[in-house]
Design a binder for these strands. Sequence first.
DNA 1: TTGCTTGCAAAGGATTTGCAACATG
DNA 2: CATGTTGCAAATCCTTTGCAAGCAA
Lengths: 143, 143
Amino acid sequence: MKKEKEIFNQFLSRKNLRATPQRDLVLDVFLTREDHITAEQLYDVVKKNDPSIGQATIYRFLKLMLDAGLAREVDFGDGVMRYEGSYNHPHHDHLICRGCGKTIEVVDSVIEELQRRVAESFGFELTDHEMYLYGLCEVCRKK
Amino acid sequence: MKKEKEIFNQFLSRKNLRATPQRDLVLDVFLTREDHITAEQLYDVVKKNDPSIGQATIYRFLKLMLDAGLAREVDFGDGVMRYEGSYNHPHHDHLICRGCGKTIEVVDSVIEELQRRVAESFGFELTDHEMYLYGLCEVCRKK
DNA sequence: TTGCTTGCAAAGGATTTGCAACATG
DNA sequence: CATGTTGCAAATCCTTTGCAAGCAA
C-alpha cells in the first residue's frame, strides 16, 4: 500500500475519524495525479468511478488532506484553489506561462535564503512564503 | 490637481468614457489611502460622503483603475482582493505577519534578478511575479 | 449503539451583470 | 440625443454548511 494511504489512515484513526469507501476512492484518484488539481477536476474523475459521490465530500476530503499534511494549496490567482500532494514532494515555487498555462516547479535555494534575510531585516521570523513567476514559455513566445 | 486625477481623466476621455461625480469621489477616497484597500473598505468610506453610492460602482471603478494602470491587485490569499495605487509607487512585494496581519512592502533587487534567471533557465521570459513572505513580526513573536 | 459521514440542497461571501432610469459630452 | 453610467437586485462562481439518513467502530 502506498505510504500516503497508510499516513492518511493513521491520521483518521488518531483523530477518531472513519475510513470510508469514499475517502479511499478519492485518495486513490488524488494520488494518481502528479501535479496540482482543482476540487472540480478531482470531482469529475472520481465521479467516473462512483457517480453517487457528492462535491462536498471532495471539498471535505481536501481539508482533511491539508490537515494531515499530505496536501498543499496552490493559488494561481484565477479564483480556483488547486491542491498538490506534499508527501515526498518538498516545497517549491511555480513558474506559470501566461500564454498556455503550463506550470513548472522551481526551487532556488539562494532566493529562499534571501527571503529569510529580507524578513529578518524587518524583525520578522519567516514562516512560509508564496512565489509565483509568470512569463511566456518558449513555445508561446514565438506566437 | 493630483497627477493621478489628470491621468484618470485622460484615460476616461481616451476611452470615450465619462467623468462622473461618483468616479471623482471614489478616486479621491482611493487616493487618500497609502496602502492596499479592499473594495468593501473603499465602499464603506465612500458611503460616508455619498450614502447613495452602490457597491457595483466601486467594483467598476477598481476595474477602470487597473485598466488605466493606476492600481494593482494584491492577493493575500484570504479570499478578498486588495488594491493599491501604482502611480509613483513602483513594484514591490509584501511581508505579512501571520499574527496581526501587519504588512510591509519589500524589494530585493538580487531576488528579482534571480527570479529572472530561474525563469530563463526554463526558457521562459519573465513578465511579472508575485511574492508574499509570511512570518511573525517582532511583536507577535513575543506572545 | 454512538457519533462520524454522506449526498443533497441551501447558504455564504466576494464579485459581476442585467436592467431601467439617469446624466454626460 | 446617443451612449455611457448608476443603483439595485439578481445572478455567478467557488466553497461551506445544515440536515436527515446511512455507516463505521
